[in-house]
Design a protein around this nucleic acid. Structure first.
Length: 440
RNA sequence: GGAGAGGUGUCUGAGUGGUCGAAAGAGCUGCACUCGAAAUGCAGUAUACGGUCUCCGUAUCGAGGGUUCGAAUCCCUCCCUCUCCGCCA
């Protein structure tokens, strides 16, 4: 959510953001509606407050009334005033609801250094790190490789879980958790607070993170646990698509001590995505699945664009180090306006080389949200002067598995059909090579 | 799943229709006293919003709705917490 005052004073920037991001659910002309509604809202607030002032005066003087006639007169005025007030309050409620609905669709305004563009083709490559590996034998994609080694089972995964279901087995299961643990430990060593957050979350958290209202159907609704005998349903909880959601919700409606910021967290959680808009995309293998594990970094920092930029670069360094530790080749892209999503102020993706498809695949996504999420979640901090300021938030993937395994196993396959284990992960498996015959 | 108790400011805790944004105590801040500290005394100490913005107003006593000229207080619905029993990884 943007600050209403910002929208009122920078309508053109907001309109530009709506069109350059291609935001759903709102058009540039709605910004003018917002301005109109905001003016109406303020007028109605002033008016209702005046009416309430008079109501309170009446209530105050009514007992001091000298004569019954005077008292009756005041009661009559109070009754009439109550009706007027109710009408005005109803009007105000409507205006505020309309205003809130439009405001909830207003995207964040992208940073000045964000490339303007329509879709992923307009993203800008910032750097590449490492070398594309060369193979003197025909490379297999991870599906062929892992199915052949009996380390992954997509057929039974689909039998049990449905479309995009999978099993990780044997050394691959160990590699999965070993890599996650490696990344988790690395971030903890860097001073990030490790957090295992709930994956079942209330709706406000999805609004707070900026997933709602745009992502609606892509979120699994996990049910209504407090359904009663009359069939009346309680509050819906959803399966979080990322730990970012519960980690942002964690401090909702709280005022933090400014001297404690930046607050750095690393969350490990299962993630659930319906992938509604991606039915026909990446249907094979681990690249796009409905449930996976992810280690996510989240930072809450001061409302300072310089500090936020430093934090974004730190988040990038952390994730890149992990990829470098795994000896994987990747590139960093600056996301263009059309590909960055509504809540983002600035966003980078890391795409890792995947020999099986002969191309890069997104493995990390880093965002500076400015105060967009914190305003929706009402997360503030007190500064040195005791003022309450809406905080800034940032996040980046540390490691998402099994997607990253696509890159890891494909890049480390050998002519003999084995998979080399990166040195840093060897302690988790107790071996440096996963042999084709080693799977049960 | 069964039974009971309760949700008031930073905390403890009074308050059962108007004089209550809310007693009292604690805490915190400032001042005084002191070589300094403790103790003591005095004063201040919620948040959000609106305005004619060093001041005034409005709202907030778990949330929402209702009754009333007027609600922390009465009524309804919901949420949450705690205790005991049962079940359970």
């Amino acid at each position: 959510m943007l600050d209403l005052h910002y929208v009122l004073t920078n309508p053109q920037k907001v309109k530009d953001a709506i069109s350059s991001k291609g935001v759903r659910g709102i058009s540039s002309s709605d910004v003018d509606t917002i301005i109109t509604l905001a003016n109406e809202q303020r007028a109605l607030v002033t008016e209702t407050q005046g009416l309430r002032t008079r109501r309170n005066e009446i209530a105050d003087t009514i007992q001091k009334a000298e004569t019954p006639e005077e008292k009756q007169k005041l009661i009559a005025e109070g009754k009439a005033l109550k009706e007027t007030l109710q009408t005005k309050e109803a009007a105000l409620t409507t205006v505020e609801a309309d205003l809130f609905k439009l405001m909830s669709y207003v995207p964040n305004v992208p940073s000045d250094d964000t490339p303007i563009g329509k879709d992923e083709n307009d993203n800008v490559e910032i750097r590449t790190v490492g070398e594309k590996p060369t193979f003197d034998f025909p490379v297999k994609n991870h599906v062929e490789l892992l199915t052949g080694m009996d380390l992954a089972d997509f057929e039974r995964g689909t039998k049990v879980s449905g479309f995009r279901g999978y099993y990780l087995k044997g050394d691959l299961a160990m590699l999965h958790y070993g890599a996650l643990m490696y990344a988790f430990q690395k971030l903890v060593a860097k001073g990030y607070t490790p957090v295992i957050p709930p994956a079942l979350v209330k709706s406000f958290t999805l609004f707070g993170s900026g997933h709602h209202p745009w992502s609606g159907a892509d979120v699994y609704e996990a049910g209504r646990p407090d359904i009663d005998e009359t069939g009346k349903e309680g509050e819906v909880v959803s399966l979080a698509a990322t730990a970012e959601i519960p980690l942002m919700g964690m401090y909702a409606n709280e005022v933090l001590d400014g001297s404690q910021l930046p607050l750095k967290m690393v969350g490990l959680s299962p993630c659930y995505r319906r992938e509604i808009g991606s039915y026909s995309k990446d249907v094979k293998g681990f690249y796009r699945v409905h449930e996976f594990m992810k280690i996510e970094q989240v930072i809450l920092c001061h409302a300072d664009s310089k500090e936020a930029e430093e934090m974004l670069q730190e988040l990038m360094r952390n994730s890149e180090e992990i990829m470098q530790d795994f000896k994987l080749h990747y590139r960093v892209l600056a996301m263009c306006t059309g590909d960055m999503g509504e809540p983002q102020y600035k966003k980078y993706d890391i795409e890792t080389w995947m020999p099986g498809k002969g191309g890069y695949g997104e493995t990390h996504s880093a965002s500076n949200m400015s105060d967009f999420q914190c305003r929706r979640n009402n997360i503030r901090y007190t500064n040195k002067d005791g003022e309450r300021i809406v905080a800034y938030s940032l996040n980046n993937t540390a490691l998402a598995s099994p997607r990253f395994l696509v890159a890891l196993v494909e890049n480390n396959q050998t002519a003999e059909g084995h998979i080399k284990v990166p040195e840093v992960l060897q302690p988790f498996l107790g071996k440096d090579l996963i042999k084709a015959s080693s799977a049960p």
